[in-house]
Design a protein around this nucleic acid. Structure first.
Lengths: 338, 338
DNA sequence: CTGTTAGCGCGTTCAC
DNA sequence: GTGAACGCGCTAACAG
């Protein structure tokens, strides 16, 4: 690794002061086009490459945005990240990524390292374990802007990009009901998470509006992991006459379906899933499966666009910038019940 | 954003030289425990937080590793990334990610920005368009170590973590043959990529070893995208008596299967897929589907462990460090042909 | 063990 | 429009 050429090298070579070189290279209007060209040329000639570390130190900015998600390999998140990276790339930002693995502790550590690494902003989908936001407000005051996505937190002045969970949930449940289901189990998630709370509310509202009693034993709360899916499937079997499932997430639902299949058990006639990632699991074309697709890539694009905007001009009241994206109810040859 | 406290602040407050403070905070053995404690305490008291940017500039290291993949949202890659992040996190490294979108140009730019951002090492799965490795050898000489994964390049002294594509491919094809298939189409990828070349070779070898003629019109090369899958499906239909498909990748194969289903067409009796990501698409349990599962997360773990090792002690002949991971042939209730 | 000195490479004052 | 000088915060090198 040979020594890099610095602005001083081209400063010496040209007998022009290094500050002028710096200005020229940053295309400052205070340098004449003539010397700019001269410097530009010499820079190329010497194979100059700006040392961003030094620049970062001086300006205290890094042109980098941090992302924290519960787990990168989850389809939904990897799609969001893909969208984020794409727009960040275009705007000249790098992305550094961390996964909380649904642990508050780990999330705190990640936020802390991102903070000390001076990322310019943070995109985060909080972990299931996140019950307080001290680490986040700390980032906000000492670091930069934050934008929530998918899983919002109730936190003042921080925008969030989400889908309308209530509506999506309501629609999915309503669809099952219209299809003749009367005993609908709900796979739900940790209720401290806004998202799952809202989805539960949508489910309950749909039942209520259709004069179907809400039975607590039909609401199964879990972490919605693959392993949980199997447990959920077992519970469903133990319940009498379940004819429909509405799941708050795809992983658990699919895992449950697999369990039914594998063991030759009867699968409920109709199943609806919110938060289904169509792109990656598109092979699953089951009759009687309804999915509410989330605009995953789009969510990434919008979230990072907003964040970058916030970074550039520290906007005063960003609370207005929250956005709710539409979803798409997709019905797969759903067998109309008699 | 108020002014941060620096080592000089605690240097002044304690009347201890700032270098000693620095050493103490870095837990250097050359500082007495007594003064360490003193400094530690004061640091906490003043709310000191190390400015990593300054440290990075001075040491010319960033404790960050770069990852470049064709597309983040692809299941296989997101799983690998997940594994990478996990081990990097444990080793105290950050990860920054870029996606090449199968474009050489973009890959070059990404490598360049990672280089100027002084990442300590690079993990890369090259894009389909990558036909030369100037940008990579440039990174190697001016940046740090590189480790290839999944898609190796023939490049001197750079280790790569891959599966045994030849063997995996041979086994998959052999399995189809044993199941009675005689007219096996191969969905293949861009032949400049080692991976696809090797898989093609495995396919050819299996046929040859079984005295089945290799027919060029049965080898369908494409980019293996979802859209390509449909084109491939159409081609399969136009071919006489295809009774098996061996695909080099899941996306195209699944897309093709969907096309068959959607249009009520006959699906070849047996299908084998290499590079299938079981975790994410586990819902697809089709009889007559054989998949060769790749150890995706494990690949990430191994690749990043190796890279970090290389970063720490610039090992002299890393070419020996290439590693081939085992795969797992998974047969789904494959209907034995009569 | 601790202090002194001298940068890392760049951006940004201020002068002129 | 350009130059001189300084500082961002930290650490390496050399003293002692």
């Amino acid at each position: 690794m040979k020594k890099k050429t610095t602005i001083h090298d081209i400063s010496k070579a040209l007998k022009i002061n290094s500050s002028t070189v710096s200005r020229a290279l940053n295309n400052s209007p205070r340098v004449s086009q003539k010397t700019k060209d001269l410097i530009q040329k010499k820079a190329v000639e010497l194979g100059y490459q700006k040392n961003i570390l030094a620049s970062n130190l001086r300006t205290n900015k890094t042109n980098t945005i941090g992302i924290i998600v519960p787990r990168i390999s989850r389809n939904f998140f990897s799609s969001v990240i893909s969208g984020i990276e794409e727009t960040a790339y275009r705007a000249g930002y790098n992305v550094v990524i961390g996964q909380s693995l649904e642990s508050l502790e780990r999330e705190q550590e990640l936020v802390s390292t991102l903070l000390s690494n001076r990322v310019d902003g943070l995109l985060i989908s909080v972990s299931m374990g996140t019950t307080n936001y001290n680490h986040l407000s700390n980032f906000k005051t000492n670091g930069g802007p934050i934008v929530f996505f998918d899983r919002p937190m109730t936190m003042p002045n921080i925008p969030s990009i989400t889908i309308d969970d209530y509506e999506a949930s309501y629609n999915a449940t309503q669809h099952l009901i219209e299809n003749g289901c009367k005993n609908i189990v709900h796979f739900s998630g940790f209720q401290k998470i806004e998202l799952y709370k809202r989805r539960m509310q949508g489910y309950v509202a749909a039942l209520t509006d259709n004069n179907i009693p809400v039975r607590p034993e039909y609401i199964l709360e879990s972490q919605l992991s693959e392993a949980d899916g199997i447990e959920l499937a077992k519970k469903v079997i133990s319940l009498p006459k379940v004819d429909g499932i509405y799941s708050s997430n795809d992983t658990a639902a699919i895992s449950a379906m697999q369990y039914f299949k594998k063991n030759g058990l009867k699968i409920p006639d109709d199943i609806a899933i919110v938060g289904f990632n169509n792109d990656s699991i598109s092979a699953v074309i089951e009759p009687g499966l309804t999915t509410v697709n989330q605009p995953d890539v789009e969510m990434g694009i919008i979230a990072s666009s907003l964040l970058i905007e916030l970074i550039k001009k520290t906007i005063e009241s960003p609370s207005e910038h929250s956005k709710t994206l539409g979803t798409e109810l997709i019905i797969r040859q759903s067998s109309q019940k008699s």
